[in-house]
């Protein structure tokens, strides 16, 4: 018998186990980022900026250069790295609390300046690491630990659609919303990330990929049910697909 390996853990991932909960979307996205970097042979040419939140430990899992930024300031840190080292691949990896809440100013101005970086935005509709509090992206009526009676627009405002919000800015070149609920959608996400990275390599400008991602522990759902909830509820509010692509 001859055994030929056709799928394995990407080289750009270390042997450290992900600290994420079972079924967490962060894990999947970490893995595909590593796959894309392997495929583009960019392991030695990449600098990532990790956020504050569950993904703050990303530097333990990726075997390329990673720094970390104060909460929400990730795009500012990434901007400067890219300006100093314009031939490197620089991406920031942020959650919805980090990007859409405390880091709103940084992401808007980085996008508006058209910085030639890629932003991977994980939207799981809550603050994961701190225990499932309301995020700007939380759905209406969704119960979180700080909206225990459900999010009502009067008290908490509306779910923030970041891609649609950034889309009119002239510096923004590529925006796509994806999900990682099954193999097909994982492949689509991988292609979107690859596109974002290759745009950056071609100096096209700012790109951001939003991933609808599950948070089974804080949603108090099993992983499979969490993905179902993304399919049935979350993607209704945040439809997947290309929002902007200017090449």
């Amino acid at each position: 018998m001859i055994e030929k390996i056709i799928y394995k853990k990407p080289d750009s991932l270390t042997d450290v186990n992900f600290s994420y909960c079972p079924g967490c979307g962060h894990s999947t996205v970490h893995k595909i980022i590593a796959e894309v970097i392997d495929e583009l042979a960019l392991r030695e040419n990449t600098i990532a900026v990790a956020p504050v939140g569950c993904a703050v430990f990303a530097y333990n899992f990726w075997d390329f250069d990673v720094t970390e930024a104060p909460h929400g300031r990730t795009p500012a840190v990434a901007t400067a790295i890219k300006r100093v080292l314009p031939d490197r691949l620089v991406f920031s990896y942020q959650g919805d609390g980090d990007l859409a809440s405390i880091g709103m100013a940084e992401i808007v101005h980085t996008a508006n300046r058209g910085e030639n970086i890629t932003v991977i935005f994980i939207n799981n509709t809550n603050y994961g690491m701190t225990g499932g509090q309301l995020a700007p992206t939380t759905l209406l009526n969704q119960k979180t630990t700080t909206s225990p009676f459900g999010r009502d627009a009067k008290n908490y405002g509306y779910p923030f659609k970041m891609l649609e919000f950034l889309s009119p800015l002239e510096g923004v070149k590529y925006l796509e919303r994806v999900k990682v609920t099954d193999a097909a959608s994982v492949v689509k996400t991988k292609n979107a990330i690859k596109k974002g990275f290759s745009y950056q390599l071609q100096n096209i400008g700012f790109s951001m990929i939003e991933v609808l991602s599950s948070c089974p522990a804080n949603w108090r759902k099993e992983p499979l049910d969490s993905n179902k909830w993304i399919e049935e509820e979350i993607s209704k509010v945040y439809p997947v697909g290309k929002i902007k692509d200017i090449k």
Partner: peptide, 23 residues
């Protein structure tokens, strides 16, 4: 049949897929 779908969806990169052929 080595379709790799399980490995693609695996969040933790815990699955390796092999294609097996007769010697």
């Amino acid at each position: 049949n080595a379709c790799t779908l399980c490995a693609i969806v695996c969040p933790d990169a815990a699955i390796e897929v092999y294609e097996v052929s007769e010697e």
